[in-house]
């Protein structure tokens, strides 16, 4: 059975405006699917639907099966058991995702305590190991720091450490590097790639920068105005984009990157 199955997902506002229309895809352990599209295409709403975290006033229809559980309409208690074990997420703005009043170590410790029941010495060791796994120098000092005391790249590493601490079967990464410098972005993407490869988790990677998404994902699903317009293996979509919106995405990426590449001897 496929680990995550989204079929006919539609998201509407209370005023009956359709934001996501009839989107279907499947994702298994070890798979890496990239959701790509412009701002407002519905990428984040799909992620939030899977997590059962759609904001009030939006409702999802269709079916989302995650590890054998129907997510849509499931009670909060049920969803809570899925989050952390079956699925976790990293978002763009790690400053908003982390509690500003809590030391980073204590935040990483939370999922480890709840999901794995670790306490005391074992918990402290697991926190340090989690921070080491995202290649943070001096993890003990990092564990004592507050979010505002570290850089954006370090915060995003902590967020990834938290998300992967309990070895979820599926990681959703929603524009995880969009607010980082390209140098830091390259490091964080490399890290994500290694960690996902090591744990064998499935990855749903969301972004608008084709070069970034194509570098991490193996398959692409192109969204336009809430609808899936094209999907397939990365190489196929890049070499022969069929839908006009995909052609625009690929053409834009090639043209912008091309300006830089033509300069290299």
């Amino acid at each position: 059975m496929t680990y995550l199955e989204v079929s006919g997902l539609t998201v509407r506002t209370a005023g009956d405006r359709t934001l996501v229309r009839d989107v279907s895809f499947a994702l298994d352990r070890g798979d890496r699917l990239g959701l790509i599209g412009a701002s407002g295409a519905g990428k984040t709403l799909i992620a939030l639907s899977i997590l059962g975290l759609l904001p009030r006033g939006l409702r999802a229809e269709g079916r989302i099966r995650l590890d054998g559980t129907d997510v849509l309409g499931a009670p909060e208690r049920r969803l809570n058991r899925l989050r952390g074990r079956a699925v976790t997420a990293v978002f763009q703005e790690s400053l908003a995702a982390l509690d500003p009043l809590m030391r980073l170590g204590a935040q990483v410790a939370q999922p480890l305590r709840h999901r794995q029941g670790l306490r005391g010495k074992a918990l402290r060791a697991a926190v340090v190991a989690a921070l080491e796994s995202v290649r943070l120098a001096d993890p003990e000092r990092m564990a004592r720091a507050y979010p505002h005391e570290v850089s954006g790249g370090q915060r995003q590493r902590v967020a990834i450490a938290m998300a992967l601490a309990c070895e979820p079967a599926l990681l959703i990464a929603d524009e995880p590097t969009s607010s980082l410098d390209t140098t830091v972005q390259a490091e964080v993407l490399g890290l994500l790639d290694r960690l996902i490869g090591r744990t064998g988790a499935g990855l749903l990677f969301i972004g608008h920068d084709l070069a970034v998404v194509a570098g991490v994902a193996r398959r692409l699903l192109v969204l336009d105005a809430g609808q899936a317009v094209e999907s397939g293996p990365v190489a196929g979509v890049l070499s022969a984009p069929a839908h006009p919106r995909t052609q625009e995405l690929v053409g834009t990426a090639r043209r912008l990157r091309g300006a830089l590449e033509r300069m290299s001897p």
Binding site: T182, A211, R257
Partner: peptide
Amino acid sequence: RKLVASVPRLP
């Protein structure tokens, strides 16, 4: 060089 190398590239 480091900045240029870190630019994500399309396969």
